[in-house]
Write a protein that binds this DNA or RNA. Structure first.
Lengths: 260, 260
DNA sequence: CGATAAATTGAGTTTTGTCAATAAAGGTGG
DNA sequence: CCACCTTTATTGACAAAACTCAATTTATCG
């Protein structure tokens, strides 16, 4: 095997165990006012909002809002695939566990992203989704979908995800460690910028191990790459905090992106 | 850059130039009998068939059947995204061209596969699709879609594609050259088996360069890996013809797959 | 049959993974 | 509130896998 083996963070992270994520802990019960998509962090960026708002289903969507603590799962592989999840705030990791117990991170999701698309049209999920921090998540039952939201917005949602996946494939197939790391940072930075948050200073919510796993690198390579980026002066890393000083340079190292 | 650079096959392949693929060359004009999805090579495996047949749209789908010669494009990046394409027979490659003129192969498509999903919901395609051999392709105009086929079958179609992409991501992120090559062969073999064709003897329709590019390897590594597989006795390679003798061994080398 | 493209093979180098040791951070309980 | 323990991250030395360059062989196409 070419890469360092990793065990599932599920087995490691204490927060992932216990009953916390199987009970109704953290349910928000806000007033109708608050339930409007307009007041959501993701408003304007939430694709499901665009998808549903025309059909007057936004209220129902928001009513299923829930707070997930770090380590709590939205769903696990083999679970019945009965819903999509929209990240209202916070961040989520999706992953699969391989036969030998190794974990492969498939994607990270931030505010406005839709999680669980790969479960649609089938009985069960093939991946698992876990919250990386205290996150607010809107649950959209799939049973409501066919009638509610399969319009142009939904097609956009799907193709958008496909394109993001293609971007990752391109990154894994053709970029070296520097290129992968730079792409990763650039994508996160762009996302924050789109949300109106700081694009230059942000906190990573995933471990180095998660990043390495996602980028197909060894954890040591992630460490060393970040250090070299810092030594060259284009950013400063303080544990999980990233402070970008030369975004253009990062962009150049990142190279080609597949996007609209 | 970690990997060997490659130029677009479009610029190299003489069949890709000229007017052949912009005119109506190769249009099949069969009788209504032949137009039934039942008589199609992909029947029973064509997801769009499942998607449309209930709605009585199969006739319209088949009417747009066309033969593409090797090197002819279904669409190119930047083209208006106005249709999905179903491979009735033959094979197709989708790819993007990067800034520096390098090509990245995103996927290979065979009988029954749907090409062009990433163009949905947007104005234009971000990738290009080119026929690798003489292929028969059904065109499904997107303008017919919203009314025609957005049922359960379509959701399955989409999630199936997402899962295949995840499988590729997992392969690129965690497998060495042997694992990638074995996965590649196993997937193709399984597909042929599903179609009722030979799973042990088949012809690859893509160049070594395409394979290397798709798997994120150098072309020399592909050559050497195939040779080692042959030396170990598990298969025989004769140029593009593959004869598999020990499928189980190949499966073991391939390792974990993400699938239903 | 000649020219171009595709594929193979060998030699050498580089990137990145592996192993191992250490340091820093964060949480827990006395 | 501090000490301890676990988790996370960093750093160095070495090994291995894969890339690059170069030369050659084998197909393919006009």
């Amino acid at each position: 095997m070419r890469l360092q083996k990793t065990v599932s963070s599920e087995a490691v992270n204490p927060a992932a165990n216990g009953t916390a994520d199987t009970e109704g802990v953290g349910y928000a019960q806000p007033s109708l006012e608050v339930l409007s998509c307009k007041s959501c962090n993701a408003s304007g960026n939430c694709l499901v909002e665009q998808m549903t708002i025309r059909n007057g289903h936004s209220y129902q969507l928001m009513k299923n809002r829930k707070v997930y603590l770090r380590g709590e799962h939205m769903y696990r592989a083999e679970d019945e695939a009965d819903a999509l999840y929209v990240v209202s705030s916070g961040s989520v990791k999706s992953y699969v566990i391989m036969e030998d117990g190794e974990e492969q991170v498939l994607n990270f999701y931030h505010t406005g992203d839709v999680v669980g698309l790969d479960g649609m049209g089938a009985d069960s999920y093939i991946s698992s989704a876990i919250s990386l921090e205290t996150s607010t998540i809107c649950k959209l039952p799939l049973s409501n979908l066919p009638e509610a939201g399969l319009g142009r917005g939904f097609l956009h949602l799907v193709s958008d995800r496909l394109i993001r996946d293609h971007n990752l494939m391109l990154m894994l197939a053709r970029k070296d460690a520097d290129g992968r790391m730079a792409s990763f940072l650039v994508n996160i930075s762009k996302h924050f910028k789109k949300l109106g948050q700081s694009a230059d200073v942000f906190e990573l919510t995933m471990t180095r191990q998660d990043i390495a796993n996602y980028l197909g690198l060894a954890i040591e390579t992630v460490s060393r790459t970040l250090r070299r980026f810092q030594d060259s002066g284009m950013l400063v890393v303080t544990r999980r905090k990233i402070q970008i000083y030369d975004f253009d340079c990062l962009l150049e190292i990142a190279g080609t992106q597949v996007s609209r």
